[in-house]
């Protein structure tokens, strides 16, 4: 009740044809219900642009995260080489490091790389995911040695062994990782707020707040925008609940 009710109210507000959001008594079943606000938010505001930006950042971000994790987890799990344990403990241990100053230093770094106000500035600092590396290492670890041996007897090189034998076996772990990372990239707010300046590159979270300042009087549009931003995440969550919860529990173990 306490958690769902505000969402119901939000959806109801987004469907209302007129009036301020502060109507009494509160309107829960808008009559007449209208989709005009949803149309309005797409046509009169650069909402479609924000939507595309979010999709792009989320897509590229997740893709690169999966790639780096799938790469890095492999040697940590299945190869012996000098420095392996040191690297592994350094990676996991960096979770303990306080990251508070990261915001400032990463801004300076991206400035030196001339990446401020680019999409890359938004996703790059988050691409190497410690959780992802850890998760993938666990997944590679449980692959039976016989499978590897058989592939080697067939004459598979290191790259083929990884790409054609190992990678397909860790797809479930990659799926979990993708879902866990999805909400992170989709909802990212603070960091894009810092590194982006052009409204035409804003993702939804930053864009929505920007619009709510610009069109302060038309809160029904903003409510419609908020609903549009939330719906994909909720749909994904309802269908893939198990993965989400597994993600948290695994995260909790780290």
């Amino acid at each position: 009740m306490v958690t769902v009710f505000p969402f119901v109210w939000l959806v109801a507000t987004s469907l209302r044809a007129s009036g301020t959001i502060f109507a009494f008594p509160p309107v829960l079943i808008p009559r007449p219900a209208t989709a005009a606000n949803f149309v309005g938010v797409w046509t009169t505001m650069p909402f479609g642009r924000f939507f595309f930006n979010t999709l792009y950042i989320t897509g590229v971000g997740i893709g690169l995260t999966l790639l780096t994790s799938a790469l890095a987890g492999y040697p940590l799990a299945r190869m012996r080489f000098p420095g392996r344990d040191l690297i592994f403990y350094a990676i996991v241990g960096s979770l303990m490091l306080p990251q508070h100053v990261g915001l400032i230093l990463n801004f300076v770094t991206l400035m030196r790389l001339h990446l401020i106000d680019t999409y890359a500035a938004v996703y790059l600092p988050g691409v190497a995911s410690i959780f992802g590396i850890f998760l993938l290492r666990q997944a590679y670890l449980v692959i039976p040695q016989e499978i590897e041996d058989a592939a080697r007897i067939d004459g598979a090189g290191e790259m083929r062994l990884w790409g054609q034998v190992m990678l397909p076996l860790v797809v479930p772990a990659l799926a979990t990782l993708a879902i866990v990372e999805f909400t992170g990239y989709w909802n990212a707010f603070l960091w894009p707020l810092i590194v982006l300046k052009s409204p035409d590159r804003y993702p939804l979270a930053v864009g929505l707040l920007y619009l709510s300042g610009l069109f302060a009087t038309n809160t029904r549009y903003i409510a419609a925008g908020a609903v549009l931003m939330t719906v994909p995440v909720i749909i994904l969550f309802l269908f893939l609940q198990r993965y989400f919860l597994r993600g948290i529990m695994l995260g909790a173990v780290k």
Partner: peptide, 10 residues
């Protein structure tokens, strides 16, 4: 769990 996956801006 809904509020957890919803954007902080929303």
């Amino acid at each position: 769990y809904l509020p957890v996956v919803t954007s902080i801006v929303v």
